[in-house]
Design a protein around this nucleic acid. Structure first.
Lengths: 229, 229
DNA sequence: TAATCAATGATTGTATACGATCTGACGCGC
DNA sequence: GCGCGTCAGATCGTATACAATCATTGATTA
């Protein structure tokens, strides 16, 4: 999504937002096809706007658009999955550090309110929602760090992480049962930059280690995919 | 630009590419207005494609699109300028390290060929071209590091750097006369990861220090801009 | 004279229409 | 029965048309 400092979101951005949420919450699985006409009917707009929305999701890495074939929810490769988490491991600890240095009391309250919603979603078995909220938590930390540029990049990385988790998560239940987020809040609240950085680093490693990123034999779903390029 | 693994660039992407180049080479200054009809005439296509291209440049942070007013080459604020270089300082040293660890002899030849073109452009007084090539040099290192995700992000950062330099560079001549790029090639060629990381870090600091990022009194070009928001 | 308002032209936002390409099924020949 | 070519329907890419919004000019009035 572009940096929407002004000009209320246009209709296209609203569509993009809703599609993004659906993907984040795993209501749309990787590989799912998104037909333009169908989306037009759902939102009651013309293809012009739908196509804008789809293109913007392509930029965010959520969709793959194939010429004359249509838009599909992206299926990150093993390599891309690793890259996403390598990139997060590179920038998020620094973000956590900056957040700790700049946090205000009301920020901490926000974070705690957020973590409660996460737990509520988990308790009610809404795994998709919980996953999305978990991603939002990381973004909130970036907001506190007050680094819009990095925040925007992190948004993309978290989007893709959602796809990676949909594809490569070992145990679909047992999601984020750890109290990593709670530890992070504490460190940030106490303005303990070193701990915040360290907690974030280990939190990401923890998630990464729960992914099944082993090379698989011919994991191609179709000959077509196998021969692309 | 989306990751164009397949499907030859569409016409819209071609337009986006050319506009991007023009901005990178400072043929289009920050704040310049890009009227849709004008671009249509130049490229001989309909507004549909032009609008796609403009939107994609907006995502890359090169343009600002204001509802019902049009597209303008972005003018990064002081804050954004600082953020861009903070972000680069965060990721590029690591990228240089990875490039050093993975470089092959032919990569080094590529880099050296590239640096020659940079010097040639400088010698011929083509400052804009030299600047673009200088950005491409950093991207080539990311290619060698073989990290597509970070490379894509870096592409955006370098795009914005180009705008930052257009706005805040102290001395418009005397660009990159240092031999920082040469030092980087040497370190990467010798697979000396520590040095590569260190050279990149100081190279970025060097550029940053040549920017004039002091707070200025109302540098608004128009009353409208001053009152926005 | 300076300020305000109205109307007009310029420019963008959205929808629709048409042509191109792909997918899948059917039928023909081997 | 199997493979291949061909045709129809579906889907997408691009151009055009119309509606909405904005900016600027010129007239009107205090």
């Amino acid at each position: 999504m572009p940096i929407m400092t002004e000009s209320k979101m246009s209709a296209a951005d609203e569509i993009a937002k809703q599609l993004t949420e659906a993907i984040h919450e795993h209501r749309l699985q990787p590989g799912a096809k998104l037909r333009e006409d169908e989306i037009c009917d759902i939102f009651g707009v013309s293809r012009t706007l739908v196509r804008q929305a789809l293109r913007s999701l392509e930029f965010e890495g959520l969709l793959t658009i194939q010429k004359n074939r249509g838009a599909f929810v992206a299926k990150p490769s093993l390599t891309e999955a690793r890259e996403v988490f390598q990139a997060r491991s590179l920038i998020e600890p620094s973000i956590a550090r900056m957040a700790a240095e700049r946090s205000k009391p009301e920020d901490i309250q926000e974070l705690e309110k957020h973590i409660k919603r996460e737990h509520a979603a988990l308790d009610q078995g809404e795994a998709g929602l919980a996953l999305k909220l978990s991603g939002d938590f990381h973004l909130k930390i970036a907001e506190i760090a007050d680094q819009e540029t990095l925040e925007q990049f992190l948004r993309q990385l978290i989007s893709r992480s959602s796809l990676v988790i949909a594809l490569y998560w070992r145990r679909r239940n047992a999601l984020c049962e750890s109290n990593a987020h709670h530890d992070l809040i504490t460190a940030i609240g106490e303005r303990d930059a070193d701990s915040a950085e360290e907690f974030m680093k280990s939190h990401l490693l923890d998630i990464y280690s729960q992914l099944d990123l082993q090379e698989r034999d011919g994991g191609f779903t179709s000959l077509r995919d196998a021969l692309r390029q």
